[in-house]
Computed example of a mutant assay.
Amino acid sequence: MKFSNSLVGFLNFLTLLLSIPILGGGIWLAHRATTDCEKYLQTPIIIVGAFLLAVSLAGFIGACCRVNWLLWFYLFVMFVLILVLFCFTFFAFVVTNKGAGEALSNRGYKEYKLGDYSNWLQKRVTNTKNWNRIHSCLIDSKFCQNLAMDNKTSSEEFFAKDLNPIESGCCKPPESCHFTYQSPTVWIKNSSTTNGSNPDCNAWSNDPNALCFNCESCKAGVLQNLKAHWKRVAVINMIFLVFLVIVYSLGFCAFRNNRWSNARHRPQWKPYA
């Protein structure tokens, strides 16, 4: 067996093994999910697991058993995947180019404004259906619980904290509201100093299940977090694209080997003398 066939078969065997726990995890989540956040994750996990399983089987059988039509299908799917990943990586860099935190005087954390981010990202997050899911995930994950447990933290200590974007946007009111600090997740509204032009000031609640989860600052914090993740994913995708191109080239060599081998072993017709 040619080297390219062996290597493609080996790589797809590894991917096949990887797809089994991914698919199993998605199925398990589908039966055990109790929150909207978990239910939202189950479908993409099952799709990714099933896709990897099908493509890996096609590549493994096509390369090792010299089934040319399966290898052709494998190469076609790989080409589409490379094209999609390239487009997504380029798109991710474009839509995450805008938006950054605003540094505040005498504060260890930054604040984030929704309008600073790309219109496409804003529309995805502010969409009612999408935000309800994100909101549910934030509550289910008890994202602000660590701050709430620090109820003995003084105002000076809290203002010096390096909060992450979601903690800054969702777990406390915006700085412009000028609320009086009581604890990290409890603030007293002061009508004489509250910024009436900022709707987040009215949206704030000391209820641990509400806080600023419906604030624009919270959506901006989610976008900043999403932007950071997308940039990391885009860099990983670039590395993965190089790997996929190499595997695709090996798969194409294996496809040619199969055709050559099939042609060599095909019985030749000879006319009767």
Rank of each mutant, 00 (worst) to 15 (best):
P271M: 09
S191W: 08
G9Q: 04
P173I: 10
L121P: 06
H265T: 15
L23K: 01
F76T: 13
P174T: 11
A263D: 15
F10W: 10
S105W: 08
A203H: 08
A100K: 12
P21K: 07
K142I: 00
T180Y: 05
T153Q: 13
V8A: 03
F213P: 02
N127W: 07
N5L: 00
E216V: 02
F213W: 06
N132V: 06
V222S: 04
G62S: 04
D116P: 00
A50E: 02
L75R: 02
N258L: 05
I45H: 01
Y272T: 14
G196D: 14
H178E: 12
S6F: 13
F91V: 06
T180K: 13
Y74W: 13
L138W: 03
L147Q: 12
M238Y: 07
P271F: 07
C177D: 12
P21G: 09
N68Q: 15
K172S: 14
G251S: 08
H31Y: 09
F158S: 10
P44R: 04
F159S: 13
N262K: 10
F159V: 09
P21Y: 05
Y181L: 03
G251A: 06
R266N: 12
C144M: 11
L104H: 07
L71Y: 06
K129S: 14
F252S: 13
E167H: 10
S217K: 14
V67Y: 09
F90W: 06
I20R: 04
Y112R: 06
Y40I: 01
A100I: 00
G25I: 01
I27E: 04
E167Y: 03
S176D: 15
M238Q: 03
K39F: 01
I246H: 02
L241D: 03
K110P: 02
Y74E: 04
K161S: 15
E157V: 13
Q224C: 10
S105R: 12
D116A: 13
L138F: 04
S155C: 03
C253F: 06
N132D: 15
S176C: 12
L83I: 12
G221Q: 05
C65P: 03
A103G: 05
K98N: 11
L23C: 04
H178G: 04
F73E: 01
P173S: 11
R264K: 14
I45D: 00
G108V: 13
R232D: 09
V55Q: 03
N190S: 12
L16H: 02
R124V: 11
N258S: 09
L41N: 05
I22H: 01
V94L: 12
I46D: 00
I246S: 06
R264L: 11
L41W: 03
F86I: 09
E111M: 09
I166F: 07
V67M: 06
T193C: 02
A203P: 00
F255R: 11
K2Y: 13
Y109E: 10
G221A: 08
Q122S: 09
T43K: 05
E156P: 04
H265S: 15
F252W: 09
N127A: 11
A63K: 01
N214Q: 09
L52G: 02
T153V: 13
I246K: 02
P44V: 02
G196Q: 14
F3Y: 14
T35F: 10
L17H: 05
R264F: 09
H229G: 08
N68D: 14
M149A: 15
I61L: 13
F13E: 00
N202F: 05
L53Q: 04
I82M: 11
S261D: 15
K270W: 02
C87Q: 07
F76E: 00
Y109M: 10
